[in-house]
Design a protein around this nucleic acid. Structure first.
Lengths: 236, 236
DNA sequence: CCACCTACTGGACGATCGTCCGATGCAGGA
DNA sequence: TCCTGCATCGGACGATCGTCCAGTAGGTGG
C-alpha cells in the first residue's frame, strides 16, 4: 500500500520502544497493553482514551514507534483519525484496532496508510501474533480475511482518494479538517494561530492537490473517510 | 418513528397497488418481484436498477404505494436516497432492502422514515412475511434484531438529525443535495431551472431549519447519511 | 375566507471566498 | 551548495456567499 515513508523495525540496540494505545474502552485497552508487554517486554506503553489525547501524547513524544488506534473512539471520525495521524507523523506506524473487521473496512484502512488491522475478536494468541508482526514493521490483517483481501484489490477510487489526501502537508491536513467542520477561514486562522491570509494560501494548495474547486468539495472528500459508527447509542 | 404522514394500507377496493422495486442486482430484484407477486397477486410491479431510475419512475407515477429500496445502489449514497425520497414523496412508503442488516443501520433507516427494513439474508418465507407486513403499512424489521432494537433506543443525535432533515421541503432537499456535491449557487440554479436568487433564498431557509451557518456545515449534515459501502470494489 | 406553507424573484449590501501577483525564512535532500 | 518543499504573510481584486428588506403566485387545511 502507499506509504509516505518506510517503517523501520525497532532495533534491539536502540532505546526502548514507545507504543501508544488509543482506545476508549478501558478494559480492552488494558488487555491490549498487557499483550504488548508480553510480546515486547521492555516497551514503554502509553494509554489514552480519545483521539485528541492521542494527538497530545504524540505531540509530546513524536518518536513513538507504534500507535494502536481504535477505529471508533471519541474525536476520531472513522478513518479521518488515521489520515490525520499519517499526515502529522508519517514516520509513526499505525495499526488500526477494531471489532468492525469486514473486508472493505480493513482494505480501506490499509489503503490509507495503516500498517496493520487488528481485530478485537482475536484470541489472545492471535493478538500477540498480530502485535509481533506490526512491531516488526510487517503488515498484519486478520487471517480469515487474507484470501479475500488478496483476491480483491482495493477500488481505484479509494486509492486515488488516499493518494490525494496523502499529498497534503501536516498543516494542510489540519486546515482541511477544520474546513470540513464548517469553520470560516478567520476561525481556522485563530485556531491555528496564523493570519487568515495564510489559511487562504493553504486552501489554494489544498484545492489543487485534491483536484477540487471549493471548500465544500474538499470537505466531501475528507468526510468520505467517515465510517458509520456501529456503536453510536448515546441515548439510554 | 417520525413520519411526515401516515401510510395507509392499500385497500382491496382501491385500484391495483403499485410497487417499485429499486435494486441494482437483477437476480435479487427478480426474486423480490416474484415474492411480491406471490403475496400481492394483483400488484403492478416496476423494477429499476438505479436510484435515478427510481426517481424517474416515481416522477411518472407519484401514486406508488410502496418502494422497496436497496441500501447500496448506484446513485443512492446510503440513507441519502431514503431521505431524498421521503422529502419528495412523503406519502409513499419506503422499505429498505439490504444485506447490511446490522442493528445500527436498521435503526437509522427507521429513524429516517423507512417503514421497514428487509434483510436480503431472509428466507423466502420470511421475505413474504416481511412484504405482507409492509404492504399492510406495518413496520417490519428482521426478527433477530427486534430485541436489540426495542432495548436500545436510537441516539438522540440521530433523531435530531432526522427531524431537521425531515423539516426540509422537497425543493430544499434537492438544493441541499446539490450543495453537498460542491456545486455553486449558479450551477444549482441552472440545474433546477430557476434564478440564482431563488437558490439563495432556499439556502437561507435550509440553514435556519438545519441550524447551521453555511453550506459546508449543511453538507456535512446530509453526508452523515452516507454509509460505508461494503461492496465498492470497482477495480478487478 | 383566511392563515399558512411553498416556490419564486428583486435590490442592495457586507462578508467571505479564492486567486493573481509577490515576498521571507527555514529545513532537508541531491 | 543548490534546490525543493513547507509555512508564513502582503496587496489587490473579482467571484461568490449569505442576509436584510421586499413582493407575487399557487395550493392546502381549518
Amino acid at each position: 500500500m502507499q506509504s509516505r515513508r518506510e517503517f523501520a523495525a525497532a532495533s534491539p540496540y536502540s532505546s526502548r520502544m514507545r507504543i501508544l494505545i488509543a482506545d476508549d474502552h478501558p478494559l480492552f485497552r488494558g488487555a491490549l497493553a498487557q499483550a504488548v508487554r508480553t510480546v515486547a517486554a521492555g516497551a514503554q506503553i502509553e494509554e489514552v482514551g480519545s483521539f485528541d489525547a492521542a494527538l497530545a501524547e504524540l505531540a509530546a513524544y513524536p518518536h513513538t514507534d507504534l500507535v494502536l488506534l481504535d477505529l471508533h473512539m471519541p474525536g476520531s471520525h472513522g478513518l479521518m483519525a488515521l489520515a490525520t495521524l499519517r499526515a502529522e507523523y508519517p514516520a509513526v506506524a499505525v495499526a488500526m484496532v477494531s471489532a468492525h473487521d469486514d473486508v472493505t473496512t480493513v482494505q480501506r484502512a490499509l489503503v490509507h496508510g495503516a500498517l496493520g488491522f487488528i481485530s478485537k475478536r482475536s484470541s489472545l494468541d492471535e493478538l500477540q501474533a498480530a502485535l509481533r508482526t506490526v512491531l516488526a514493521a510487517q503488515t498484519w490483517v486478520p487471517p480469515p480475511l487474507r484470501e479475500d483481501l488478496s483476491s480483491h484489490p482495493p477500488a481505484l477510487a479509494e486509492r486515488h482518494l488516499a493518494a490525494r489526501l496523502a499529498a497534503l502537508s501536516p498543516q494542510q491536513m489540519r486546515v482541511l479538517v477544520l474546513v470540513a467542520d464548517g469553520l470560516l477561514n478567520k476561525q481556522i486562522a485563530d485556531r491555528l494561530g496564523v493570519q487568515e491570509r495564510t489559511i487562504k494560501a493553504h486552501l489554494s494548495a489544498i484545492f489543487e492537490r485534491l483536484d477540487v474547486r471549493n471548500r465544500t468539495q474538499a470537505s466531501v472528500l475528507l468526510r468520505s473517510l467517515e465510517l458509520a459508527d456501529p456503536a453510536q447509542r448515546l441515548d439510554p
